[in-house]
Structures are given as C-alpha cells and as structure tokens.
C-alpha cells in the first residue's frame, strides 16, 4: 500500500500534517511530505485513509 500526494492539487491547507503528524510532516515551504513509507502497520493505514478522506483538495490517494 502506498500513499500519493498530488502537489499540484494540494493548496497547503495543512490538514494532513496537523491531524496526522504520525504520517505526514510539513516541509519548509508548507508542502506536505511523508514521514513514513512503510504502511504495513494498521495504525498508519488508518491515518492514511483518514487523511485521504478529509484533504480539502482531494490531493491524497492510496494505492494498494
């Protein structure tokens, strides 16, 4: 399972990194970045799914 962030769509709302700091972090310019790449952990999968759901720009997607 992989998380993808489409930085063209993302407008830097910050929702993913403030709500799921376990998985995302803010880079200096405000773009979100992934902190963790291994998503075998069930907790991390949940963070990924919730972030994809609430991203106001629809910029986060999950690939199996």
């Amino acid at each position: 399972m992989k998380v993808r962030i489409d930085l063209d769509k993302c407008y830097r709302s910050g929702e993913c990194y403030y709500n799921h700091p376990e998985l995302f972090e803010m880079s200096d310019d405000g773009d979100p970045a992934l902190k963790v790449t291994d998503l075998t952990d069930a907790g991390m999968r949940l963070h990924a799914e919730q972030a994809a759901e609430v991203c106001p720009a629809g910029a986060i997607s999950i690939e199996e």
């Binding site: 407008y11 830097r12 709302s13 910050g14 929702e15 990194y17 403030y18 803010m26 310019d29 405000g30 773009d31």
Partner: peptide, 20 residues
C-alpha cells in the same frame, strides 16, 4: 491556510493564528 503557507509565496496575516 491553517499552515500559514501559500502557493503564491506571500506571507499571510496572523489574525487567525496558525497551526494546531
């Protein structure tokens, strides 16, 4: 934006706070 970061590269006002 909650992050206080914008794609136009300009700073925002601080009047709503930032972050958490």
């Amino acid at each position: 934006n909650r992050s206080g970061r914008y794609k136009d590269g300009k700073p925002g006002h601080l009047g709503f706070g930032i972050g958490q």
